[in-house]
Nucleic acid binder design. Structure first.
Lengths: 178, 178
DNA sequence: ACCCGGCTATATCAAATTGATATATATCAT
DNA sequence: ATGATATATATCAATTTGATATAGCCGGGT
């Protein structure tokens, strides 16, 4: 799913600013997607030109003015069409797995340090996910709940997987060190 | 791990062409990383200028000439330093999970179709991984074996996770359809 | 014998994306 | 009063993707 479709999805239920969209991404979606301002603002501009969304400025006294974006009927149609398009492969880029592939090049101590760093990162992300869901559960969307439960199992499995990997790394003798 | 480090890692054990590197990525690493020609060739050029690698042309009669890249001592140092740098968060972009989040917007039939598409994609990737490992097992690198076993568990867990999700999707009544 | 698709091998390019940075104000804790 | 964090916009160099171009080889089907 591309940037524009994702943003339209968010606007289906609430009008939002670019800032709101970024915040939503860093919180709820960080485990399966991610967007930065450099892609959000251009996408909003493009979609406004294409009449998929409209913008109105909300003047604020003690903060910068907001540009609130609202989805149009045309935008809703585009979103539904995009949502029905076939699922494509996940794209994933794992710093740890890339390193693991070349672990014969470093010593055992460094290997264990890196593996434990990865475990900490994963455990922290799992906690983040739980915290966000606890705050957002009141929306009561059944599919977002299923999505959350998918995420929980995902991180739980991943954590076990790393533990298993660390065990294997500890078993390997310190023979080929430099 | 960035593009250049990854390429250096591959060159640690074998001299390779850009084409070889791309092939290795689409096969062995596709599940946790990925590179395209548009990033491989510029990276090779840059690293040659920086004396991290050297290039020599291998003339071929019945195929285009090869540009074979070999890592230098400086390149090896750079690689080891990069490898020891801290692990950073995985970046992942899941088409299916993004869609799932908005499943209230489409009917049950479409939802199940998309979920089953995802399951097929994951199962196919698992088979690919098994096939590649079967072909590559002879290198005998213990850490690449651990990496492979991580991948196997990863896909197995993911497949179960999707099955569980499909079950939940089937249980949800067709109430909110359009 | 002939054609088509796929493989080997290079390379480039528009478009998208990242990650950093800039600007400006407010609030809150130390 | 200083520094950190939050609100809110936006841009930019550098990187990356995904597609396309070029060009000859090989193997399978008809």
């Amino acid at each position: 799913m591309d940037t524009k479709t994702f943003i339209l999805g968010l606007l289906m239920t609430n009008s939002m600013t670019g800032y709101d969209i970024k915040k939503t991404f860093s919180m709820s979606f960080s485990f399966f997607s991610g967007l930065s301002y450099g892609s959000i603002y251009p996408a909003l501009k493009k979609m406004e030109t294409d009449k998929a969304i409209t913008m109105n400025i909300q003047v604020q006294e003690n903060a910068p003015n907001k540009k609130v974006y609202t989805i149009t009927d045309k935008g809703r149609e585009i979103f539904i069409e995009s949502l029905k398009k076939p699922v494509v492969e996940d794209k994933m880029r794992s710093s740890f797995l890339s390193k693991l592939f070349f672990f014969s090049e470093i010593g055992q101590v460094d290997r264990i340090v890196l593996a434990k760093q990865y475990q900490e990162i994963i455990d922290a992300k799992e906690e983040d996910l739980k915290a966000v869901n606890y705050a957002a559960r009141k929306t009561g969307d059944a599919f977002q709940q299923i999505n959350y439960e998918f995420g929980l199992r995902f991180f739980n499995d991943l954590s076990n997987n790393i533990q298993e990997t660390i065990k294997k790394l500890e078993e390997i003798d310190n023979g080929s060190d430099q």
